[in-house]
Simulated scan of single mutants.
Amino acid sequence: MGIRYYAYAFDADLAEQAVDDPHSILSSDPLADAWGLEPHASVSVATFEQVSPKRDMLYLDKVWSALQSLTCPTTDVPDAGSCYRMFEGSVTMHGLGWDPWVRTILPVEVPAIRDDLCAIDEDQVRTWARTWRSRHGADDDDELRYVLDYLRRAQTFVETLAADGRGMVYLIG
C-alpha cells in the first residue's frame, strides 16, 4: 500500500492532549477516512471520497515526500521552510513493516507555516521540479499536476487551521 500522509486538526483547547498523546487526535484507521472505506473492515468498497470533513483532515497520499523536498531548508537558504515542519519526518523501517512518524503542530505555530506554505506558487514548484524526480515513475507533467494539486490542498488546510485557531497532528506511515 505504501507510506502515506494524514493530518488531523484539533481545537486549541486540546493542545495539551495533542502534545501528550498525539495518537488520541489521529484516527484509528486514517486510510479508511481518506478513501471512504469502512474502518477496520477486512473487506470494504472504497468510495475514494474522504469521510472526514476537509477542514478536519488533510490526506496527502504519497506526495508528502515531494512536498518535504520542496519545503526543505537548504544550505543556500537555511532559514527557509518553516512549512517544512509540516512535512518533516520519515518512518522507521524494520522487518516487514515500519513505525510511523507522528508530530504535533500547535495552533501558535500554524500562522508561520501557513504564511510560508502559501507563499509557494506554481513557478516555484516548476523550478523545483526540474531537479526532483519521483520514485514512482510518473511523467513530468503528471507529476507536476499531482504535486500542485496536493500543495493546494495543504495550503487550503493550513489557511483554515490558522483562521480557526486550530493545530494539527500528522502521521507519515
Rank of each mutant, 00 (worst) to 15 (best):
L67F: 04
G97Q: 07
V91H: 08
A66S: 10
D76T: 12
D99N: 13
F87C: 02
P100C: 11
E88V: 12
V108L: 07
P73L: 07
R103A: 15
P78R: 04
P78D: 06
C83E: 05
D99E: 14
D61Y: 11
P100D: 09
W98V: 00
T75H: 13
T74Y: 10
V91E: 11
R85K: 14
T71Q: 01
P107V: 01
S69F: 10
Y84F: 15
V77I: 10
W64Q: 04
R85Y: 09
T74P: 01
S90M: 12
F87V: 07
F87W: 07
F87T: 00
S90P: 09
P100V: 05
A66D: 06
K62I: 10
P107G: 02
D61T: 13
C83V: 11
C83G: 09
Y59S: 01
P73V: 06
Y59Q: 03
L67S: 06
D76S: 14
L60R: 03
T92G: 08
W98T: 01
T75I: 11
V91N: 06
W101R: 09
H94T: 11
A66C: 06
V63K: 02
R103C: 08
L70Y: 04
T74S: 15
A66L: 00
W98D: 09
Q68W: 05
I105D: 02
T92P: 04
Y84K: 03
I105M: 12
Y59L: 02
P107M: 03
Q68R: 14
W64G: 01
R85V: 08
D99Q: 13
D76I: 12
T104K: 05
S65A: 13
V102Y: 04
T75P: 02
P78A: 05
L60F: 09
S90G: 14
D79L: 14
G89N: 06
W98P: 04
C72Q: 15
T75M: 12
G81V: 04
S65N: 10
T74R: 09
L96C: 10
L106R: 12
D79A: 15
P107C: 03
V77G: 06
V108I: 11
Y59A: 01
T75A: 14
F87E: 00
T71M: 11
L96Y: 10
P73H: 05
T104F: 04
W101Q: 09
V102R: 02
I105N: 01
L96M: 12
V77Y: 15
G89W: 02
